[in-house]
Amino acid sequence: MQPLRGIAFKLIAVMCFITMQSLVKAVSTDVPAGESVFFRSLFALPVIIAWLALRGDLRTGLRVARPMDHVWRGFIGTCAMGAMFAGLAFLPLPEVTALTYAMPLLVVIFAAMFLNESVGIFRIGAVVLGLTGVLIVLAPRVTSFGGDTVKMMEAVGALIVLLGAVCGALAQIFIRKMVQTEEVSAIVFWFSCTSTGMALLTVPFGWVVPTPAQAVMLVLTGLVGGLGQIFLTSSYRFADASLVAPFDYASMLFAILIGYFVFAEVPTSQMLLGAALIIIAGIIIILRERQLGIRREKARQAKTPYN
């Protein structure tokens, strides 16, 4: 184990994913979310294929034991990604980031519902704390219903992002089951393939011809997202999941900095308070799972930022 290297790789992965989201946000006023999902998935494939080839895992990455599991995981994951990308058009980057932190909280709930995992009072308390933070973040948006058009769209955007978090949590439940029969490399590779194909189904809903600058940014979403996936998976090869997982929350710092300097977004104190509660809850859950000996390395390796 090389823990410092694992942490460094995780931070690089987080920065790649925030950069990817920033690129999506930069084109989101003109480019539909489904089109962004297509570019992100398609141009991640060459990076992932090259990485698998260099590791000697290309054959493993193409082999599947249960094809329909990949189809359903791809469908749910594509919905999650599309919802998150759609939300970036209406909400500040730090706020979208904060709402995505609801995913690990929802995973605890869904794991108890669908995987029959035992959830003690300690983790239930953490989930309640985290969901309280989510409500604090959502409150200004939800109360905007009935206001002007801009506030209405922001409220809709917040609910779309929350729906994306639900889909992302369900996708993670799929992954937890899939790692029992499927290799991580196969899950990563086939998700990019299925999400590329499924994104094409959104063409009738209004794709546009991007400008040269937009096309460059869209291609970069895939390349940067693919690199992020590689560094994410590699981080778990050099350090325990329980050590590197909390560094997911460094994305809030990056989101605030990019939001402020690139998009002139200033987070509200209420949003920061809600995000802080969600982060504390997420870290409590991670530490508790470590104490209980619940190992999630393979599932986390196969995870994408929005699943």
Rank of each mutant, 00 (worst) to 15 (best):
M1A: 13
L4I: 10
L4W: 14
R5K: 15
R5I: 14
I7S: 07
A8V: 12
K10H: 05
L11F: 05
C16A: 12
I18V: 15
T19V: 12
K25L: 00
V37Q: 09
V47I: 15
W51Q: 08
L54R: 15
T60M: 15
L62C: 05
A65P: 08
V71I: 15
G77D: 01
A83S: 10
G87R: 01
L91V: 06
E95R: 10
A102T: 09
V108K: 01
I109F: 11
A112N: 03
I124P: 08
V128Y: 05
G133F: 01
V134H: 05
K151Q: 15
M152C: 11
V156F: 11
A158Q: 03
G168Y: 00
I173W: 01
F174P: 00
E182G: 07
E183M: 13
W190T: 06
S195A: 15
T202G: 08
W207D: 08
V209N: 08
V209M: 08
P210R: 04
M217S: 10
L218E: 01
A239P: 04
L243G: 05
Y249L: 06
A250F: 15
F261C: 09
F261P: 03
A264W: 05
V266F: 13
P267I: 05
S269F: 13
L287D: 11
R288I: 00
R290T: 03
E297F: 08
A302M: 04
K303D: 02
